[in-house]
């Protein structure tokens, strides 16, 4: 069953068509990779799905309901969460606070509940803290929760960003180059981690990735974009041999930069 579909999605920047009449179907509980040369419109696709950009044309359905035109915060409530290509944690908040911000959309207490510390608020905060500690442990960072996010090494920042995204309990997680800048052993553990997310938590994952080893290793299905258009889609083995894909990767010298 599909969890996310886009129909004819189009996003333009001035004269440039970043995403061009894209039809994408993401199956539930799959790891779906989106690959393509630089500037193929992958990150723009993410931005359109999460509501940061509004596509000019076409629809996005999530869980059989349209999410086009919703603000990003509403879309998170529907169950889509994301990470960023260049890590965007809240640098001056602690790891715990970063994760708690992720839990934000499940907390309800209002101004007076907070000021008067009504029982509901106390309970909610306690549960949120427990949840956040659990997530810290899940990413192997327990004991580091009170350090500022900006002080962590690169790999831990990546994991923390994923934990923050998981905190909103998404059904669909969009990961934008989660292994960028990692060495082979870090990459391997990230791959294991992503599979673990899908297998243990049942989260559907859409992945933008440049490292072919990662893409071929964990994807159930791969979509290839070039100049905003889908040029191929299929199982890893099919994509590997697809002449159009090879042409796009080797023949595209000067694709316009869009990020």
């Amino acid at each position: 069953m599909s969890i996310l579909t886009t129909q004819g999605m189009t996003k333009r920047f001035g004269g440039l068509v970043a995403v061009n009449t894209l039809d994408l179907v993401v199956e539930e509980n799959s790891i779906h990779s989106v690959i393509g040369p630089n500037g193929a419109g992958k990150t723009t696709l993410f931005n359109c799905i999460t509501g940061f950009y509004k596509p000019e044309d076409g629809g996005v359905d999530f869980d059989d309901r349209s999410i086009v035109g919703l603000t990003p915060d509403r879309i998170v409530h529907r169950g889509i969460s994301r990470t960023y290509q260049n890590i965007r944690l809240f640098p001056n908040l602690t790891a715990m606070e970063n994760i708690l911000v992720g839990i934000h959309c499940h907390l309800k207490s209002g101004f007076f509940g907070i000021v008067l510390k009504l029982p509901g608020t106390i309970k909610e905060e306690k549960e949120a803290a427990v949840e956040a500690r659990r997530l810290l442990k899940f990413i192997n960072m327990d004991g580091k929760g009170d350090l500022l996010a900006k002080n962590f090494p690169y790999g831990e920042q990546r994991r923390l960003e994923i934990a923050r995204a998981l905190a909103s309990r998404p059904k669909l997680l969009l990961l934008d180059e989660p292994t960028a800048g990692m060495n082979p052993s870090e990459t391997q553990s990230m791959m294991d981690f992503i599979e673990h997310l899908r297998d243990e938590l049942g989260i559907t994952i859409v992945l933008i990735e440049h490292q072919m080893r990662v893409v071929m290793g964990i994807s159930d299905i791969i979509t290839v974009l070039d100049y905003g258009k889908k040029i191929a889609e299929g199982l890893p083995d099919e994509i590997k041999k697809d002449p159009i894909v090879i042409e796009a990767y080797l023949g595209s010298g000067s694709a316009a930069e869009i990020h």
Binding site: F52, P72, D73, V76, R88, F90, L93, V101, H104, F111
Partner: peptide
């Protein structure tokens, strides 16, 4: 020390990401 305080500080740090984490700006 509440969800509101954290939402404000998240907004201070990075407004776009705060919104993408479900905070109604």
């Amino acid at each position: 020390d509440s969800r509101l305080g954290r939402a404000w500080m998240a907004m201070r740090e990075d407004e776009d990401v705060a919104q993408a984490m479900g905070i109604n700006l």
